[in-house]
Structure formats: structure tokens, C-alpha cells
Nucleic acid binder design. Structure first.
Lengths: 196, 196
DNA sequence: CACCACTATGTCAGTTCTTACATAGTTCAA
DNA sequence: TTGAACTATGTAAGAACTGACATAGTGGTG
């Protein structure tokens, strides 16, 4: 009873519900665009896999591996699937919002506008790149129209979130860049304080 | 050299750059709508304040407090302000994206659509409530048009991000609810598999 | 042939953070 | 007047996570 499963445990189960995988593969799948919402290092995944194993939520079969140890191909058990199903509809706990870029923005009034503008331009490029990727994936996904009850539905729904997130983020970066450029060349307004 | 300041340290400095505060007040300020992007428990804040103090980035004066200990009113030092200024324009490290609701979405295909719909409806209400708050704050902020170089600019910029974030999030929740309702009543399409 | 990237598991030290506990004064409502 | 909510600081155990290290085969590039 003392062993509660952390969120990462359910992330692992979510991956295994789609395909049997080694710990290494799980880490890789979490890094892929559609699933990048709860990444973890392989060491943490191995730790949690052992915990899930002890709880009977996963099992594994061995196969010869590249390293000194044997490769372990994990699969979700019936119990694991049930636990995952229950967890999915439980209301998510309020997340601690942690966003370094927004924090920097909160303190932006202290810094050099030109350097800030450069930082936001870099961030914007990143968001635009991801947005393009997501939009391409979305186009093919929409045609397919995966039915609820299939894993592809989960892919589509998560992708939809990523898509609108990147859109919001890119818009916000553009807004910031615009704001900063106004403070750099206050051409029309002569009443600005001219410190420096 | 071994003491690198964690992000929370800069969050604390960002708060202190606006007003001298006790550790307790810092925690409260971080919970407020405009600044809720790097929250922490008071115990962690106390720990980090001691670290910032050791690094010379903050100082404090004491005053009689309610508890057995004296109250400590912290303030940022010149060194602290300089460190904060430098940090602001440094590119943010890639964040580990962690979103429980999106993770649940990724595994949503396994669960009961009705229960899921209920969960998203609850999430939607939360986002709509916050959005209304942010929009009200935004309206007064926009009239004021805070100049760069003033703390209010940081407030406005962070608020702008929160505003478009809640909008994106609410839109996505609505999209999810719509998708789920389609899978609940497949009235126009008779080719659905009728399990259960 | 050397080097790198990839596959694959694991340990370990250390950091960050949460949760619970402990103390104690004030203020306000039932 | 009792109790809750708020102000205020701190400790300590433990969970969650990162990053470095260690091992070792395969396959491809220069």
C-alpha cells in the first residue's frame, strides 16, 4: 500500500499499452514529437520499470542484448492495463507551472531589449519549426480520422494539443518581439525618458 | 564555484526585484495569477533564500514576527540584480515538458468516453475561469500601456502569455469534448463496431 | 582501422522538491 | 470561547529526477 505509482509510471504504461518495448525504447518513444509530454532519462525509466514489475503491472521476456546484460522486453499486464484505464479518467492534480521563458519575461523589464529580442527570435524559430512538423503530421492524421478506441486516436488528440500550443507560443513570441521593437525605436513618441 | 543558482533562485530574485519581502510573502506572490509560472513551497523558498544569502545576492533585516523566530525581510543586493539581469537574456534551457492532462489524452483511447468527457468539461471550466480573470486584467493593463523598464511591463508580458495559453487550452478542451461526443453517439455512421 | 552513433542495461552521487511536522502570535466569525 | 484562517520560520524524511560513469556489441563513415 505504501507504493504509489508516480506519473512517470503511467507514462511508461501508456507506451507499453501500444507496443512491448525495452526500457531504452520507451525513453525513445517519449522523446518523439507526439509523445513528448513526460520525458525522462533512461535511468529513471529503469528504476520505475522495476517498481511497476514489483507491483505486477508489467512483465518481461529476455532476449540477447548488445551489452553485458540481457535485453528485457517489457509488456503491460492485465492488471497494468486496468490501473492505467482507471488513472486516465481521474482528474489530473493541479500542475506546478514551471516555465523558464515566462519567468524571464516577468523579469524582462530589467534587461537589455535588444538581447531580449534576440532571445525571443530564437524561441520563435524553435516554435515555428515544431509547428510546421505538427501541421504536416496533422494533415495526414485528419484524412485518416482515427476512431476512438484505437491508439491513433490518442496520437491525434495529443498532436492537436501540441499544435495549438505551438501556435499560441509562436504568436506570443511575435507579440513580445513587437513590443520590444517599440521600446527600441520610440520614433513617434518623444516623451520617453532618455536614461542611458 | 560549485554553487550554481537553480531556477527557483532567479524566481525569488525576480520577486525581490519588485519589492522587499519575507519568505512567506514570496511564496504568496508566486501563487498570484500574474506570477504563477514557478511556484514552490515555502520550505524550498527558505532553503534557496539561505543559498542566495550565502552567495551575497540577497540581504535581510529582521523585525518581530508572529512565531518563535524573528521575521526576516529580504531584499535583493546590487550583485543579485546584476546576476538576475544577466540570467534574463541567457537562452532558456530546453524544458522537460510535463503535462498530466496531455499524458492522459495520449492514453485516452483505452478509457470510457463519457468519463473522459466529464474530465475535460471540468478542465474546461477551470481554463474558462482563468481566461475571464486574465481578460479582465488585460483590459485595464492595455489602457495603461506600461513602458519597458518598469515592472508593470513584466506583468503585462507574462499576463499576455497566460491569456493566450488559457485560450489555446480551452479551445483544445472543447475540441476534445466534441471528438468524444462524436464517439458517444455515432448516429450518422452505422458501420461502428458495437462492442458493449 | 579508428571513431562515432546507436542499441541496451545498470549504478551512484547529488540536486530539487514535496509533505509533514513543530512553534506561535493575531484576527475574525460562529 | 473555540476554532479556523492567516502570518511567519524552520527541520527532516523521503520521493523524483539528472547526469556521469561503466560495459559492450553492431554498423557505418572517413
Amino acid at each position: 500500500m505504501s507504493s504509489t505509482i508516480p506519473t512517470l509510471g503511467f507514462a511508461i504504461l501508456s507506451v507499453l499499452a501500444r507496443a512491448d518495448s525495452t526500457g531504452y525504447e520507451i525513453a525513445g518513444r517519449m522523446r518523439n514529437p507526439v509523445a513528448r509530454f513526460w520525458t525522462a532519462s533512461h535511468s529513471q525509466i529503469h528504476t520505475d520499470l522495476r517498481r511497476l514489475l514489483a507491483a505486477g503491472l508489467v512483465g518481461y521476456t529476455t532476449a540477447p542484448g548488445p551489452g553485458p546484460q540481457e535485453k528485457k522486453i517489457y509488456s503491460i499486464t492485465g492488471e497494468g492495463l486496468e490501473a492505467l484505464r482507471e488513472w486516465v479518467t481521474e482528474p489530473p492534480r493541479p500542475q506546478p507551472e514551471r516555465d523558464e521563458l515566462v519567468l524571464k519575461t516577468y523579469a524582462a523589464w530589467l534587461a537589455d531589449p535588444a538581447a531580449l529580442s534576440e532571445m525571443f527570435r530564437t524561441a520563435l524559430r524553435g516554435h515555428e519549426k515544431r509547428l510546421a512538423e505538427y501541421e504536416a503530421a496533422w494533415a495526414s492524421m485528419e484524412k485518416e480520422a482515427p476512431a476512438f478506441g484505437t491508439p491513433r486516436f490518442g496520437n491525434m488528440a495529443a498532436l492537436r494539443c501540441g499544435l495549438t500550443y505551438e501556435r499560441h507560443r509562436a504568436d506570443w513570441c511575435r507579440w513580445m518581439i513587437d513590443q520590444l521593437s517599440r521600446s527600441l525605436k520610440p520614433s513617434c513618441d518623444a516623451s520617453y525618458p532618455s536614461e542611458e
